[in-house]
């Protein structure tokens, strides 16, 4: 956090003039689990983008591609993996319950510290 400012240096009334400056606050450090891309190919349906509570799915909006995770802010809730329709298909095809970090998935949820990348 930046140097604390004196009362003459800040706007009155506790007003914040820098819209969306919360991006400067890294919530990624909260993570116990991390989303990583698995073997199954992404279909760029943007379901993960739609349901991420932390706006932490990185997309190339112009080319309509999901390109990764904003690990500075992702808190590792795992919702992206749960709403992923490719994951659903992989699980259905496997015919059995898969671990969250199964390599065959499209979005895997891996324990922080066990990530090999």
């Amino acid at each position: 956090m930046a140097q604390l400012k004196g009362w003459k240096e800040i706007p009155i009334a506790g007003i914040i003039l820098e819209a969306g400056n919360a991006v400067e606050y890294r919530t990624g450090g909260w993570r116990a689990f991390r989303p990583v891309r698995g073997e199954a190919e992404c279909i760029h349906c943007f379901q993960c983008w739609l349901f991420c509570p932390d706006s932490s799915i990185l997309v190339d909006a112009e080319n309509e591609k999901m390109i990764g995770f904003d690990l500075d802010h992702c808190k590792g809730c795992g919702i992206c993996a749960r709403v992923c329709p490719v994951n659903e298909k992989v699980i259905r095809n496997a015919g059995t319950k898969l671990a969250r970090d199964d390599a065959r998935l499209c979005i895997r949820i891996v324990e922080e510290g066990r990530v090999k990348e």
Binding site: V23, E24, T27, W30, C45, F51, P53, D54, K75, C77
Partner: peptide, 28 residues
Amino acid sequence: PKELAKRPDRLSPGHRLCAGCGASIVVR
């Protein structure tokens, strides 16, 4: 979703709602 994603999110990341919070999904 692909069309909606072309506009910047009106709620930025870096907020301190719990991991997996339903409220920010609704807002977004």
